[in-house]
Design a protein around this nucleic acid. Sequence first.
DNA 1: ATATTAAAAGACCAAAAGGTCTTTTAATAT
DNA 2: ATATTAAAAGACCTTTTGGTCTTTTAATAT
Lengths: 147, 147
Amino acid sequence: MFNKETEYALRGLVYVQLQQIKGLKPGIKEIAIEIDAPLFYTGKILQRLVKMGFLQSTKGKGGGFYFDLNKPDVPLKSVIHAIEGDKAYTGCGFGLKSCSDEQQCSLHSQYAPIRASIDKLVSENTVQSLARDFNRGEDILLKRLKS
Amino acid sequence: MFNKETEYALRGLVYVQLQQIKGLKPGIKEIAIEIDAPLFYTGKILQRLVKMGFLQSTKGKGGGFYFDLNKPDVPLKSVIHAIEGDKAYTGCGFGLKSCSDEQQCSLHSQYAPIRASIDKLVSENTVQSLARDFNRGEDILLKRLKS
DNA sequence: ATATTAAAAGACCAAAAGGTCTTTTAATAT
DNA sequence: ATATTAAAAGACCTTTTGGTCTTTTAATAT
Ligand code: FES
Ligand code: FES
């Protein structure tokens, strides 16, 4: 569904939020292990997320990643958009240069509603809402990534 | 939605079918131009499709690509599967190792029906049904690829 | 002050996807 | 037979994605 970078980014963000709920501030090594992603790549991705403003971090002893609680919840869509752009789930499934209800290909009437559902999914779900859900499910995120 | 190779393959197949309806047997150059795809890459992809049995071809004068009319219609899904594998639209959207109704992530209940719709879309639509649809629409395929 | 810790920065590498081009093979029209 | 045509085969190249590793910077505990 998503590319690797997006997948690791989303898992990482949810993991940070999950720990923040517990009052913790995880570091790269811990995050990478827990979300089952490559260590250095995870670091690079987290840094990008910080630079893009999705996440905060502090260096040095006791450092790690955390969210600014004043900021509004982060929809999955904004993370996806920042990493992959909006090419996914926009445009004609068949490759026509434009896609609209006026000028449509043979797949349009079936494909357009699917695209809309995906858009809804990533718009309505946020990093925070997922963390809440995962938390309720006894940390299914952590347990289920590796087996 | 699909990767480039799949996209060109599907457009190519539909174009061949569209010409076959008119009693014609297009060649690589014509196909590449009409589906707005890179010439040599289109050739390579068409050859792969022939080797995989989706398409027939003859070399030399009067040569080109055509379908064996005895074979059943080709669902988009089988082309996609042959080119991209089934990794797309299977598996957990969040990257969990397994995805089932029993062991599900927070996105599952929303994502699973979407995936099912996509599966239905590519299973029910065939190269031949799309060609019929495009034909009805006054060759919207050809006209609409480039502008 | 300084040792320690941990993120930031950025160079570097590998695989996959996407694309180009030349040579070979087969069909057919003459 | 042979010239012509067009696909098959395959070498090669470029870009993007995914990933690794080293060096630098900043925070903090002592
Ligand atoms: S025109 Fe093809 S999906 Fe809309
Ligand atoms: S478990 Fe995640 S989509 Fe099914």
